[in-house]
Write a protein that binds this DNA or RNA. Structure first.
Lengths: 128, 128
DNA sequence: TCTTGACCTTCCCGTGGCGGGAAGGGTTAA
DNA sequence: TTAACCCTTCCCGCCACGGGAAGGTCAAGA
């Protein structure tokens, strides 16, 4: 299976698949003409990474998850710890975004939003 | 005021201040020795940008906010529109993060987290 | 057989918003 | 004079790719 077919099978862009090879996440064989040749296992690993990425894991975390996936003697606690840390990260981002949202909302509420220049939003930025 | 003092006054790293000049957000004068020389106005603009960045505005949005700040004939509606769009952006990110969090939480709850290899989190990644 | 078009390859540059560090010059106090 | 800081420009690195150039390969049709 060449890279185009693998891209269709995984719904990943070709560029992304080549990048994943470059950084060592997958190791496809090469055909006699130099084309990359993806096995079902390769495609499976690519899908694994795609799913992990879509859940918010970084490339390095995906690498770790793949190594756990490969490890028959893994402890599920290690996987769970990774996921819990990711949840913590998400929670921190949520807090930050909610705080930003609250501040912006407060500012927006006080702004008339007409054709005159007086603007509490600009004033806030200039005052701080 | 040289860049070190400006950095202390604005709580921005020197590198960031130079970058803001490079991309045309501020235009400090130069002393005879080639050192950047920041006026109170320059420092004020830097603080303005720092505050806007901390509220989640991108550099290009900061550039726009600065031009509105400079424009005595601005319409506050334009500023408000920018802030509202930013709130919408934040809401989209919040939705996405909350969705990720829910998925990860579901997976984490089903995982025993012990020293055995069976792991619904890995299974989910591999199955999808 | 030749050509066309759809693949594939590697290579290099760009993104946003800076940070790190090298190489070199200016300033100030002991 | 020397040390300790300040400043300058310049270039590379980050993350996770995307765009595009230059060139090789392959299958189908005229």
């Amino acid at each position: 299976m060449n890279i185009g077919s693998a891209a269709r099978a995984t719904e990943l862009p070709r560029k992304t698949i080549r990048y994943y090879e470059e950084i060592g996440l997958v190791h496809p064989a090469r055909a006699h003409n130099g084309y990359r040749d993806y096995s079902d296992t390769d495609v499976h690993r690519l899908k694994f990474v795609q799913r992990a990425r879509s859940l918010g894991f970084s490339i390095e975390e995906c690498r770790l998850l793949l190594s756990l996936y490969d490890d028959e003697h893994r402890a599920s606690a290690d996987v769970k710890a990774l996921a819990l840390e990711k949840i913590g990260e998400i929670d921190r981002k949520l807090d930050e975004l909610q705080s930003l949202r609250a501040t912006l909302s407060r500012l927006v509420e006080t702004c008339q939003g007409n054709d005159r220049p007086d603007c509490p939003i600009i004033d806030d930025l200039a005052r701080a």
